[in-house]
């Protein structure tokens, strides 16, 4: 856990690597999340929709980033968490989640740090770009 009250701009706070995303993981996440869109688990459906194969739920990737975030920052300090899904995350992707302090801000009257967050695959391609506001 970070000593959040001591954070300064530029500090690297979040860093976590995840194992490759398997078909099994996508099936489990389908059930565990309630997101039953077949495009993530049924290769026939994915191909009919024009994709070469199934691909990861954006929210599975955001869940990894959320895990990396609250490994580093106590969850009770989290005020906002937002991401943009920059590119599709393919099967087999090995994700690395990172975050640093972008600025110190006042958020609804509370002294906070804004973290800039990214999730990249093993090729360094950005999959998610986001930010979190955490109370200091």
């Amino acid at each position: 856990m970070s000593e959040t009250h001591r954070l300064s701009v530029g500090d690297r706070v979040v860093h976590k690597a995840f194992p490759p995303i398997t078909r099994h993981k996508l099936a489990l996440y389908c059930g565990a999340s309630g997101d039953h869109n077949p495009i993530h688990v049924d290769i026939d459906f994915a191909k009919a929709a024009g994709y070469p194969d199934v691909f990861a739920h954006g929210m599975l990737v955001m869940a990894c980033l959320g895990q990396a975030l609250t490994d580093a920052v106590p969850p009770q300090r989290l005020r906002t968490f937002a991401t943009r899904f920059v590119a599709i995350t393919q099967l087999g992707a090995q994700l690395t989640c990172e975050g640093h302090v972008a600025e110190l801000v006042d958020h609804e009257g509370e002294r906070c740090a804004k973290l800039a967050l990214t999730t990249k695959d093993e090729n360094g391609d950005v999959k998610l770009s986001g930010e979190a506001v955490i109370a200091l």
Partner: peptide
Amino acid sequence: GSEHAFEFLDIIGADLSQILHGEQRFSY
């Protein structure tokens, strides 16, 4: 918890094969 998780697709006239998640935000 939803009876029909993709209700909005019927309302706006789109289907599951056409959609991607663009952005997500939570404010706690």
